[in-house]
Computed example of a mutant assay.
Amino acid sequence: MKQPKKLPWTISSLCDGCASCENACPIEIITMVETEHKGFSIPILKKYEDCIGCGKCANACAMGGIAMTAYISDAIEKCERDRKRFLASDFTPWERSE
């Protein structure tokens, strides 16, 4: 699978937990997860490997809580940390050529 040129980056301090991004994702890879602050959720990519980089999630966010970033390696690392922290599931990151 071809890696997109950009990936979504959640800016938690701007997120209001509305789930507009989750609803806008055409391939349903965004999920809202409850944070340590009970009753407050943020979006994470549950399958960033499948992200097509369309930006519909960022466009749907009225608060600016999601931005598209071209720093793919950083975004992948953040997604991996978020998934370990919030989903505790196994995953296989993209193979990167060094």
Rank of each mutant, 00 (worst) to 15 (best):
T31V: 15
G17L: 08
C51I: 06
P93E: 02
I66N: 00
I66W: 05
M1Y: 12
I52E: 14
T69Y: 06
S89C: 10
H37S: 13
M63L: 08
R85Y: 11
A70H: 08
C51M: 09
E28P: 01
T31M: 11
P8G: 02
T69L: 08
T92F: 15
K47H: 13
E77T: 11
R83K: 15
G64Y: 00
H37R: 11
Y71A: 14
F86Q: 05
V33A: 10
K2R: 11
S13Q: 07
E98V: 15
L87C: 01
I52F: 07
N59Y: 09
L7V: 02
E95F: 04
M32W: 13
K78R: 13
H37Q: 15
L14W: 11
I27G: 05
K78W: 05
C18K: 04
I27E: 05
S41L: 02
M1G: 15
C79S: 09
K84I: 07
D74Q: 11
N59M: 15
E49H: 07
L87F: 01
G53N: 11
E77P: 01
A62D: 06
C18P: 00
A58G: 03
A88D: 14
S97H: 10
I72R: 04
S20N: 05
I76H: 06
T69I: 02
I66T: 01
F91Y: 15
M63E: 13
E49V: 07
D74M: 09
V33T: 08
G64C: 05
N59C: 10
S73C: 00
T92V: 15
G65L: 10
D74G: 12
A75H: 09
I29F: 02
E49R: 05
M63A: 11
I30D: 00
I29C: 07
A62T: 02
I66K: 03
E98M: 10
T10K: 02
A62Y: 03
I30K: 01
I42W: 00
Y48M: 07
P8E: 00
D90E: 15
A67W: 06
I72T: 11
A62P: 01
G64R: 03
I11S: 10
C57G: 03
I66E: 00
P93Y: 01
K47D: 14
T31P: 04
R96C: 09
I29K: 08
A88V: 08
T69R: 06
P93S: 05
A70D: 13
E36N: 12
G64S: 03
C54G: 05
P4T: 06
G17N: 08
Y48L: 04
P4Y: 03
F91C: 11
